[in-house]
Nucleic acid binder design. Structure first.
Length: 885
RNA sequence: GCCCGGAUGGCGAAACUGGUAGACGCAAGGGACUUAAAAUCCCUCAGCCGAAAGGCUAUGCGGGUUCGAUUCCCGCUCCGGGCACCA
């Protein structure tokens, strides 16, 4: 390296002389970053005299290296942070590591290392990569969630929740690999088999810890209405996930059983159409019926095969078997057969449903398959009911002409009337009651894995489950372990679990399960506000919270973002924070995608080839006609544009891009190529376009700065061209502020700045006022671009004659209203809604003047030939539409 | 299967509250500069018809509302996200 530099000395000198006008990203970025580091430019503390702004991006899992999804997420956060700071806010932007999780265990097996060591190495590497991107983080607040200093507080919270009854233990179903003798994550079940062993996965019930999120269901639902700054899609998904439904619980007596079978239904109006009852395979009644019924027992056994994920359960072929039991219809006394059905979920409602095949699509299908009776009890208008073919209206309770039929006393009632009548009747007879049911289930937080936060519970044969006393926390996970594979080291080590019961002092054992990693990511945002606090958070949390802007992937719309809201309410109810919701504004960014390329192997498999190694071929109309591998010139196949992934080898390494183009160019492209919530297609040619823009901007500023001293703009002395450029400048200031601040439409903000630079390139005016206008424009552009390309702005601000230290807190430019005034406007002229021309009209002209001018337009006259004016619509400043006929 | 999104030139996109569809960028074609390359600059660029003026068609597909629909409504198709143990 040293030798090469010496040999190229003369070239360096040559470029040094040209240097003033040529943009060299690496040097510019190193200088700016060194300056920020030395100045501690992004370290913040509470300051009640200024409005605060807490800008938070979802913390990364330290998987090994930064990927483009991170770059995109964190650039959005950084742009918003820098923008808010220039708008006078005291901005907190922190960063940390979601350090527990399954991939560390997999890597540990593969690389024969400890999960902790692998994790810490990744953090070191990725921190350097983030710093190289120039993100304005307060690094003094950084933490990794796998450290006891962090997780001790969630252990403390958990023990307190146990005492409040908000944490409890019950059996729950997991995926069991019978060969590896281990619990599998849903992700580790591929086509119903364990990913390592290939064995058919079974469902197995084991005791696990739960948090009572259902106690907060109503508040989590209502809270969504207090979040106008969250995307509607996320709120709708959460509403549906929480799934509040009002219905009746109805008790069906079962022949020969003391206990009734309770079903939940949202359609009691169809009660008289129930022809059988379906129960889940895990329902106690099913298990009881299977005793002494080998056919049913083996069916239930079959249902135990396969994974537990809802997607898998819901897409299975609908299957069932009669239990031989009969339920008694609570109104008619009719005997209804009780069936086990694989689509009835034990986790929802009571695990039993009354089947109304006449008006429920799944029951309809099931009844046809097993030849069970179908009975119509709903009619709508003059629709004909056909028991052989499903039609949507059969289940539509919202139709105004819907009435109950063939149901005795219910006949003629609509949904609401039938609901109320039956609720009163059944409640009166003790056969049922009104009930609000939730789709939301309690949060199972136990994981049978090593690399997670130990659950702080001690089991004693006398005292059962005892929370670890507060003075014995944290329960520390040993990090220096041999991790060979299947078995968790703390489960394998009989010594680690040995302890004494805090209540009776007798011999006892520790819980060896660890927490779901969503536990750590549910409260990290609060810990950033209180570094070093000797509590989960301290009073500083109430200065910074709630988060003003939260940014992360849409894939977190439900799980993380619901647990995040729930945990915040737990902390609020523990007196730790005051706000009701953790974040007021949410931005969900789309994925980063890239083209895929492959070659077919002889065995039918595919070799995926990285886009960086491929050259695209086009015809003269620029259409893609093929692609070749750069190294051998031979063709490769094009496989479509997909999410960047290891499996398709279409990931683009951000580090390679930063080394080639610089961080500012990468940041600029991520913000320009697509609006933030849409998917972003990576294109190296597109990145080159951004580099071109920065070079032009650099040249424009440096050549201007090298010229004669500028004067101050005198608005009264400007000629038409100067005025026009200045108007465009102030329109751009207005647009960029609105696009970045309100709309988060970064791509259009950048496009407006590109247009302004194009206009400056054509502005060949070197008069004193010309230079003054250009100077005003270039200074504003440096400031407007600062959030996106802070290194370039840092350097060019000095080139324009300002000392470095003022840029960070320089006020955001304001548009000059006087410069925005237009003398004339262009209106579109339509005849019958079709554009036929445009007219120029004075800004203050009346509707009548616009109408007259439009009617006089030669093309309008031509199209009006032989027709008369029926009506004229004038939208001031926009269009004139002449309706002719 | 269920819930939530998305679809606009060769490509990424823009059109913010129903008002000139395609700003900006990429790719491509033509040209200038240069010994050459790189870099840079200029011109063209939705499709079709036309010498031009201009016209016709066009925002995934099929309908509808409206003076006017990429935008609103109804019905589809395809693609993506989530489905509770990936994070």
């Amino acid at each position: 390296m040293q030798d090469n530099q010496a040999a190229q000395g003369s070239t360096d000198q040559a470029s040094e002389q040209a240097g003033e006008h040529s943009y060299r990203a690496q040097a510019v970025e190193a200088a700016a970053q060194q300056y920020w580091r030395e100045q501690r430019a992004y370290e913040v503390k509470e300051d009640p005299s200024r409005p605060k702004f807490y800008c938070l991006s979802m913390l990364p899992y330290p998987s090994g290296a930064l990927h483009m999804g991170h770059v995109r997420n964190y650039t959005i956060g950084d742009v918003i942070s820098r923008f808010q700071r220039m708008n006078g806010k005291n901005v907190l932007q922190p960063m940390g590591w979601d350090a527990f999780g399954l991939p560390a265990e997999n890597a540990a097996i593969k690389n024969k290392t400890a999960p902790a060591k692998w994790t810490y190495q990744n953090i070191e590497h990725m921190r350097g990569q983030l710093q190289r991107m120039g993100f304005a983080y307060d690094w003094t607040r950084e933490f990794a969630t796998c450290r006891p200093e962090y997780y001790r507080w969630e252990q403390l919270m958990f023990t307190r929740l146990m005492k409040k009854g908000l944490a409890y233990r019950k059996n729950a179903v997991v995926n069991w690999d019978p060969v590896d003798q281990t619990v599998l994550a849903n992700e580790q079940v591929v086509d119903g088999r364990g990913w390592r062993s290939g064995a058919l996965v079974e469902k197995r019930e084991i005791p696990q810890w739960f948090l009572k999120i259902t106690d907060y269901a109503q508040e989590l639902l209502d809270g969504l209405d207090t979040l106008p700054g969250w995307p509607d899609a996320v709120k709708t998904m959460q509403r549906n996930w929480i799934g509040r439904s009002e219905g009746l619980e109805i008790h069906f007596a079962v022949e020969g059983e003391a206990e009734p079978l309770t079903v939940f239904t949202t359609r009691p109006d169809t009660l008289m159409g129930a022809t059988f009852v379906s129960i889940a395979g895990e329902h106690p009644l099913a298990l009881k019926a299977a005793q002494g019924n080998t056919g049913l027992a083996s069916f239930l056994d079959e249902l135990r095969h396969g994974g537990v994920s809802e997607a898998e359960l819901e897409t299975q072929e609908k299957r069932g078997m009669a239990t031989g039991l009969s339920a008694i219809h609570p109104i008619t006394g009719e005997k209804l057969p009780v069936w086990v059905a694989n689509f009835v979920l034990m986790g929802y409602g009571t695990g039993a449903v009354m089947a109304v095949p006449g008006h429920d699509e799944r029951d309809f299908e099931f009844a046809h398959k097993y030849d069970l009776p179908i009975r119509q009890v709903i009619a709508a208008g003059d629709e004909t009911y056909d028991p052989d073919k499903w039609q949507e209206w059969y289940s539509d309770k919202t139709r105004a002409d819907m009435r109950v039929v063939h149901s005795g006393a219910l006949d003629g009632k609509n949904y609401r009337e039938a609901f109320d009548y039956l609720a009163a009747t059944l409640e009166g007879e003790g056969k049922g009651q009104r009930r609000v049911n939730w789709r939301l289930r309690d949060w199972g937080v136990s994981r049978q894995r090593y690399w997670g936060c130990p659950i702080p519970v001690i089991y004693c044969s006398k005292c059962e489950a005892v929370p670890v006393p507060e003075d014995q926390l944290p329960v520390v996970l040993p990090e220096d372990v041999a991790f060979s594979g299947v078995q968790s080291p703390i489960k394998a080590d009989p010594e680690w679990r040995k302890t004494t019961c805090p209540q009776c002092g007798g011999p006892a054992e520790r819980e060896t399960d660890t927490f779901d990693t969503f536990m750590e990511s549910s409260w990290y945002y609060a810990r950033y506000t209180s570094p070093g606090a000797d509590a989960q958070v301290d009073e500083r949390a109430n200065y910074w919270l709630p988060v003003d802007q939260y940014i992360g992937g849409i894939e977190h719309a439900i799980l993380h973002l619901l647990y995040f809201r729930f945990y915040h309410k737990l902390m609020r109810d523990a007196g730790l924070v005051q706000a009701d919701e953790p974040a007021t504004n949410l931005l969900c960014q789309g994925m980063v995608i890239a083209e895929t390329f492959y070659r077919d192997n002889a065995d039918g498999s595919k070799d995926w080839i990285n886009p960086a190694d491929v050259e695209i071929q086009r015809d003269e109309k620029a259409r893609v006609v093929g692609a070749v591998l750069k190294s051998d010139g031979q063709p490769v196949r094009i496989g479509g544009t997909e999410k960047m992934s290891k499996s398709k080898n279409n990931g683009i390494d951000p580090q390679a891009m930063v080394e080639k183009f610089g961080a500012d160019t990468v940041r600029l492209f991520s913000m320009f190529a697509a609006p933030p919530e849409q998917s972003l297609e990576w294109s190296e040619a597109g990145v080159e376009g951004m580099a071109r823009f920065l070079r032009r901007f650099w040249r424009e500023v440096t050549t201007h700065a090298a010229g004669p001293d500028h004067a101050v703009v005198d608005p009264a002395a400007l000629d038409a061209g100067q005025k026009a450029l200045r108007r465009q400048l102030h329109e751009t200031i207005q647009k960029v502020g609105d696009d970045v601040g309100r709309r988060h439409s970064f791509n259009t903000a950048i496009a407006a700045l590109m247009e302004l630079l194009n206009a400056l390139g054509k502005f060949d005016d070197h008069s004193e006022q010309g230079r003054a206008v250009r100077h005003e424009a270039l200074e504003a552009m440096v400031l407007l671009l600062n959030p996106v390309v802070p290194h370039v702005s840092h350097a060019l601000w000095q080139v324009l004659g300002h000392p470095a230290e003022v840029l960070e807190d320089q006020p955001w430019p304001k548009a000059d209203e006087a410069a925005l005034v237009r003398d004339s406007l262009t209106l579109a002229v339509q005849v019958n809604g079709k554009l036929r021309g445009t007219i120029e009209i004075a800004a203050g002209a009346s509707k009548e003047q616009a109408e007259q001018l439009a009617l006089a337009h030669p093309n309008v006259i031509a199209f009006m030939e032989g027709q008369s004016v029926r009506k004229v619509i004038v939208v001031p400043g926009k269009i004139v539409n002449i309706v002719a006929g």
